[in-house]
Amino acid sequence: MNLRRYVVLRLLQLVPVTLVVIIINFLLVHLAPGDVSIILAGDTADPAYLAAIRERYGLDRPFLEQLWRYLVQVGSGDLGLSFRSREPVFAEIMSRVPATLLLVGTSLGLSVIIGTVIGTWIARRPGSTTDSVVSALAVGLFSVPVFWLGLMLVLFFAVQLQMFPAMGMSSVDGPREGPGRILDILHHMVLPVLALMTVSVGQYVRLARSAVAEVMGESYITTVRAIGFPDRTIMMHYALRNALLPVVTVLGLQLGLVLTGAVLTETVFSWPGLGRLIYDAILARDTPVIMGAFIAMSVTVAFASLITDLVYAFLDPRVTL
């Protein structure tokens, strides 16, 4: 099938997805007690001001009208203004996206690489003591609450060893641009990435292990063994490549889950990411930001799954798009 047509079709599917996401969230926020007017006006505010805020933000209109107005607005590519900071939601989200992408992307990338390497390594001898221990450890790792792990890392690396900072993405005194800034951010990234990576790496260890072990039992591996390829070549060149397929699939599906882990990690390390933005927005009933962020995240996940499918098709010639 024509690649461009496929991509366009898949992107078109984003429309109903966005629609459902909007409706679900709009409904939830609308049904919930409390709205932004109380947050902004404070608890002793004059009723007139509460009414004025509701009017200014269109909260005084019937639900369906609010929804319709919002849909029309989003349809025209405008996510609106934040109820709190009164700045464009799109800009607010974009100011947080790099931080989240950096954190999630790096830890996910490292998890996949390290997890696959370890998983492949233990798959050489399935059933061995090493395999049992490492597999159990992998399960243990993704059973650790990330906030607990985060604090432990802080106490050890930031307080005890004074090696890495534990708050934010850059230092107050740090350089604002150039390579110094990059190094500063890298330095701040170490602990949050380590925390997030630790809890997600186990998944890929298990996945790679079973995938490689399964591939190693395939006939074509027997063929290359018979041809005389050394074990390491077979493992790295043949088994790994075939075993990557399920890893790639899960990677796409898991992005949402990792974004999730990010809100807890972002909280522990005061990371200025999307997760915290949503959390703050929810507590402040900042509907435009909540909606915008949910849309952004769903679209990101959808894109990730599209890219996953493309990569899968590239890796596995049997798959046609």
């Binding site: 109903p16 949910f294 996940v301």
Partner: peptide
């Protein structure tokens, strides 16, 4: 299937967060 796909795209923890925070 479409519905299932859509729900899979929504980061579940945030939806939980939204529901619990709001209600």
């Amino acid at each position: 299937s479409r519905t299932i796909d859509v729900f899979l795209l929504i980061p579940s923890f945030f939806l939980v967060l939204l529901i619990v925070a709001l209600f």
